[in-house]
Nucleic acid binder design. Sequence first.
DNA 1: ATCCCTCTTGCGGGTTCCCGCAACACTTCT
DNA 2: AGAAGTGTTGCGGGAACCCGCAAGAGGGAT
Lengths: 237, 237
Amino acid sequence: MKVLLVEDDQFHASYMEDVLVETLPEVTQIFHAQNGDEAEQEARAMAIDAVVMDLRMSQRNGIEAARTLWQERPETRILFWSNYADEAYLRGISAIVPEDSAYGYLLKTAPRDRLKLALRAVLIEGQIMVDREIHRLQRAKGQPRTSLDDSEYAVLLDLAIGLQDRLIAERRGMSLRTVQNRLLSLYDKLGVDDAHEDLPINKRVRALNRALVTRTLNIETLETAQRDFDRWQAGRG
Amino acid sequence: MKVLLVEDDQFHASYMEDVLVETLPEVTQIFHAQNGDEAEQEARAMAIDAVVMDLRMSQRNGIEAARTLWQERPETRILFWSNYADEAYLRGISAIVPEDSAYGYLLKTAPRDRLKLALRAVLIEGQIMVDREIHRLQRAKGQPRTSLDDSEYAVLLDLAIGLQDRLIAERRGMSLRTVQNRLLSLYDKLGVDDAHEDLPINKRVRALNRALVTRTLNIETLETAQRDFDRWQAGRG
DNA sequence: ATCCCTCTTGCGGGTTCCCGCAACACTTCT
DNA sequence: AGAAGTGTTGCGGGAACCCGCAAGAGGGAT
């Protein structure tokens, strides 16, 4: 079995390689990539079907690389391995994982045993596995009261790249007032509170701020949202 | 000589310890801390005067910890050691470094030799040293045309936490119109462009977005800006 | 079918934002 | 001193935003 290890931190990479050879005798070859672009090329060239992927990388991040990989070969098994428990990453992943694909999400701080377990479960057995720790950490961040539904999240992304209500309405096929209703519930769920000692605030900016601080969005999310918008924008005269 | 190593990634910590003992025979003891809070306690308890500090940590980030350390003992020598070349970090550091203090900023990707050099230059010789690589990487990010001056940056922080023009004016002691002038130049420098195919945008949100994407701000900056504001807010009726 | 609940949409108006214009400072150069 | 440049401030108005209110439009449950 061939495994592709996508990781730009050399220490983490060599640790993972260690654990891989120790844990999975099935593995015959380990390929390396430093970023998303290299990962795609390697995977294509070597017909890889098992990947361990860091999420935060310089060029092209793990989620975008994974999307391409899965588009080409949906049966690819991917274990995401990250320092961060951002909801943004989880949401990004679940937005691109195909029907019936095996994947996992593990924190880099996970003990060696749990890493071994996850490697076997995801890469060999084709299971789905998400580190419990992730949800625990998210709770500690003081995250939104209730989680956002898909349409709220979509509007949040549009808000975050600076679109005006009218344009959001057009893009998402809602009326202007409906967009504003979504914004209202966003403000509510993100804890955008006009109160705070009768201090008036700019709700729009505050919403983005809160989304970032609660790790509902992160900077990479903003970048990919922008690219998605540009693509949509390009295909419509 | 006692050195405090503040780093929450065990691989990086042990690598750094390695290099420390190999490079600096002057070092007699190495203490460890996992986050900013521990760092402060250790430094106080052990009368530390040389620190190697990661910037991105869970509890309290490196910059805030450094501020406290330097307040208590301005002669402390600190080498910041980070994965990221965010302008936000650089600006945060130069905002808190005391007159005549020795510090350095090095990327974790720096080769071992450069790390050795920086360790000796900063911790032993008391020099100031900033990795050239940092500026190179920043340029690659498509950063703002010209860099922001201090008053523009202050207004940007206020905007980023969601304050309205009026409140910014009050806090910074400017007139409303002056705040708006600052915003205008911010929009310009951050590349907030109304154009883009005659698509109207929300400039305020867009400014925050651009500041984040160009790494002028990062999420931790938002968090500390909020704390600063709360403190200001507490001390005034 | 009727009632109830949720979601959507239009309307209206109060507020904030964005910014051109013009009047002053204040500095600097000649 | 005079001129020319730069930064600050007030005024005014058009556009965008926020949101209460109320009229539908579906979707279950009884």
